[in-house]
Nucleic acid binder design. Sequence first.
DNA 1: ATATATTTTTAGATAAGACTAAAAAAATAT
DNA 2: ATATTTTTTTAGTCTTATCTAAAAATATAT
Lengths: 217, 217
Amino acid sequence: MLSFSEENYLKTIYHIEQFQPDGVSTNAIAKKIQTKASSVTDMLKKLAAKQLIIYEKYQGVQLTKEGKKIALKVIRRHRLWEYFLVKKLNYRWDEVHEIAEQLEHIKSKTLIDNLEEFLRFPKFDPHGDPIPDKNGKMILTKTISLLELKVGQKGVLDSLKDSSDAFLKYLNKKNLALRDRIKVIDIEPYDNSVHIETKTHQLLISKKVAENLNIKV
Amino acid sequence: MLSFSEENYLKTIYHIEQFQPDGVSTNAIAKKIQTKASSVTDMLKKLAAKQLIIYEKYQGVQLTKEGKKIALKVIRRHRLWEYFLVKKLNYRWDEVHEIAEQLEHIKSKTLIDNLEEFLRFPKFDPHGDPIPDKNGKMILTKTISLLELKVGQKGVLDSLKDSSDAFLKYLNKKNLALRDRIKVIDIEPYDNSVHIETKTHQLLISKKVAENLNIKV
DNA sequence: ATATATTTTTAGATAAGACTAAAAAAATAT
DNA sequence: ATATTTTTTTAGTCTTATCTAAAAATATAT
Ligand SMILES: [Mn+2]
Ligand SMILES: [Mn+2]
Ligand SMILES: [Mn+2]
Ligand SMILES: [Mn+2]
């Protein structure tokens, strides 16, 4: 049985691996998990001893098949609980992450499958991220960043690159939600800001924000 | 913020205090929490330093007002989660305790009140135990053990003195459930076993079992 | 009242997971 | 090619929650 901490490391390595497929660095993990590099090194040794990652000094790490399986289990639990909190307990999407961070570590052979059934097998969490099924399979949607759209092009807001509460609150304020249809009205070449239009309103968006919006075209 | 372990100690002390109002012994705690007496002593010092218990060497402990408040919070969380597991995820009453032992430690200002509302403010958990409200208030039902009933007397199975999974499974097997109307047919003076009748069947019950059935007359 | 048994506490050790400071390795810049 | 900077690891410390073994206090029995 893995500890909370071990599960968090595996999950974090999985997330970073999506962008850094050939070797996740100690520092990258430390930054995401909000700890010191030396603490990360200690844990990497432990996970390597358990054959959950491949670790060679100074070389960065990769999840083994078993490590990836556990990471996906934790992510599955996290996203199903987030869905529960939003759909059943009426939380907003910017309120659930921290609670799910705790709930994702509850240990039970049956709990998460029963929860999934109760929720009627949702395929996406409140932030548009796919929920892995019992076997770790999930729906991967092809998206591009809003920054890559040309003037006049349309698309649908599918998910987010940054799901921090701060960014979610920003989107609340600007009245932007998942599945909103977005059209690019204009792009300012000086600072790459984007002028967009939704069904209900027009909006000016900075490069930084545009970068974090995943669009299905 | 208290640790899992501290919360468990407070909850356990509260439970024992119901039967031992003037001082809970180190050994009693150790037995319930499945740990060594020396470990208990260490924790008692810590809880006393935090003013959650009154502790004097060799004298046993009592919860302070604040300690009791926290204990009731943990019990509230435990019982609401148990209710959720049975009513929403279709668990049996003998399957939920261990999962609730984990869920009861999830920290959030709002979670448990939202869960309570979602469940429509249940007043009793699946084992007949009262669920404390936001302020720690709960419905206390006057019951006596089945052992105290006379031949011919009737009553309703209200709750259990022992809610271990083993005992719950025994009751499943014998087709005895909460709120069953029970009549005492005969009492065997030799071993204090009790012959009872419910709406559907008759049953012979040992002294030990009878002792653990709380009856509302 | 005294011996014996039981309970509780103390002392010292261990494991997990974090930290700081310093050393070693790797990456980058001149 | 060498110096400098950055990254990573090591060594040693700390905290929390355990444990065992031994000492001290209390309870029980004769
Ligand atoms: Mn999240
Ligand atoms: Mn999410
Ligand atoms: Mn329980
Ligand atoms: Mn219960």
